[in-house]
């Protein structure tokens, strides 16, 4: 069980990291979602114990599974859900303002803008040369 879980975490994290290195922003977002799911699974596996469901009236002698990790995972899932929505919104804004989701195009636009700013800042570059 432990081996399967750790393999699952590793595969999720690895594929997520691979996707995050892609040039397409949508893939980056998907990679991020996969990595946060790997984290959720990792929290679950941090307190992996066999036992009954931890619902209050249970016999004194029974072993219950750790409820804390489940609560933590639930919180983390909610947070990562909110963040995915937020990041997708951001990606949409990037698309609206650049009409592209390719990171190469976006960094091209950045360079262009920076060159323009540099020109505005120093209108007479020759003066420094003398």
């Amino acid at each position: 069980m432990i081996l399967i879980l750790s393999l699952a975490v590793a595969v999720l994290f690895g594929s997520g990291a691979y996707l995050m290195l892609k040039r397409d922003l949508i893939r980056v977002v998907v990679g991020m979602v996969m990595i946060s799911n790997a984290a959720n699974l990792f929290i679950m596996s941090a307190g992996l114990t066999r036992g009954r469901a931890p619902i209050h009236p249970y016999p004194e002698t029974a072993t219950v599974s750790d409820p804390l990790v489940q609560a933590m995972t639930l919180t983390a899932i909610v947070i990562s859900f909110g963040i995915s929505a937020l990041v997708l919104g951001l990606v949409y804004l990037v698309y609206i303002s650049h009409l592209s989701l390719d990171l190469e195009d976006i960094s091209d636009a950045e360079e262009l803008e920076e060159a323009q700013l540099e020109r505005e800042r120093s209108p007479e570059p020759e003066r420094e040369m003398v």
Partner: peptide, 23 residues
């Protein structure tokens, strides 16, 4: 456009940081 680019870089990098912290 500049601010949106900054926000997307910031969000992607720091999300990764947050997930690492969670782990």
């Amino acid at each position: 456009a500049r601010q949106i680019r900054a926000a997307s870089i910031f969000a992607v990098v720091n999300l990764l940081g947050s997930v690492l912290f969670l782990i």
